[in-house]
Design a protein around this nucleic acid. Structure first.
Ligand code: SF4
Ligand code: SF4
Lengths: 159, 159
DNA sequence: AGAGTTCCGGACAAGAGTTGTCCGAGTTGC
DNA sequence: GCAACTCGGACAACTCTTGTCCGGAACTCT
């Protein structure tokens, strides 16, 4: 039961991109968070593949959000980076062994499977109910607007 | 985001032990489910360490539930086998890099952390709301009482 | 058009975590 | 007392994640 550690980086990047009016390069984001640039690039590529960020190449290129942050949920980022595969995957144990259930009884998912998928769905629903904009609002409400402004200024500063 | 595959085996074992009036050895449970006996033993040991099952050694020894199945939740089994560590673990990113937040601002968990822990708690609550007895009731309600009786008879049969 | 950035995608090694197996310690029944 | 059976934890093999790297394509500025 372990989630990819890159999810946190991706969330922090999504939050930081909220305060950007420029495309921001991956190297800049990595420098800001003091993490491996090569590995962060991989996470950003995953987000790009999921359609969360748009990437522009070239001299002033970089990443920027494709939608307003109020339309990007935390679940979007988690699924983009960590994969949409549910945590619990069945091996169809009940169909094996000397007491194997009849194949017809295995048409519907069993009680264990249902309980696990229900829990997984609850987890996803909780993650889907909070957006990147909500995160930014919480941060500014607690630590003031200076945080976002500081990020924006740092993005606009020369490399 | 992957859960240990042994969780499924452990849940199946807990369900099967519901229908046992004897202690059942790990080898028997493994034969019943057609899985690796040595590895299943490890899961049962974890459950024993968590206090879910009691193990008696010796000739007629084996595992049996310590409480009535209505007092054992699915979350108990999952945490016993997969570990109680939450899926999301922080690296304290906001305290690093050139824009590191002040140490005093890091006293309280940030918005991202709160969202993740809330989702994790929702997942756990969903798993905690269903007990092993509920699983057994669902199975008998769908496939009849013969399933439990078949398991019990197979347990009582000679090796 | 040319040079200089920058992203993209995949290939590649290192590390951690999981999966699976084994044998010794201890207990029970005869 | 003895023998057989059990659990328990220690031990490798394996898979997946983490992290790195490079060549190619695209874009901007001169
Ligand atoms: S559907 Fe139920 S019985 Fe079949 S593998 Fe999944 S948990 Fe086991
Ligand atoms: S508490 Fe927030 S800022 Fe700190 S490491 Fe966790 S997610 Fe990142």
């Amino acid at each position: 039961m372990k989630m990819s550690g890159g999810v946190e980086w991706a969330l922090h990047c999504a939050f930081a991109l909220t305060a950007a009016d420029h495309p921001v390069s991956a190297a800049r984001l990595a420098e800001m968070h003091d993490v491996s640039a090569s590995y962060l690039a991989k996470q950003l590529q995953a987000m790009s593949r999921a359609g969360l960020v748009r990437s522009t190449q070239g001299n002033l290129g970089g990443y920027e959000l494709t939608r307003p942050p109020s339309r990007i949920t935390v679940l979007d980022v988690v699924e983009a980076v960590d994969g949409p595969t549910p945590a619990f995957l069945c091996t169809d144990v009940r169909a094996r062994g000397p007491l194997a259930a009849s194949p017809e009884a295995c048409r519907t998912p069993c009680a264990i499977h249902r309980a696990m998928t229900a829990a997984d769905e609850a987890w996803r629903a909780s993650l889907r109910s909070v957006t990147i904009a909500d995160l930014a609002a919480q941060v500014t409400g607690e630590h003031g607007r200076g945080v976002l402004d500081g990020v924006r200024n740092w993005f606009n500063a020369a490399p």
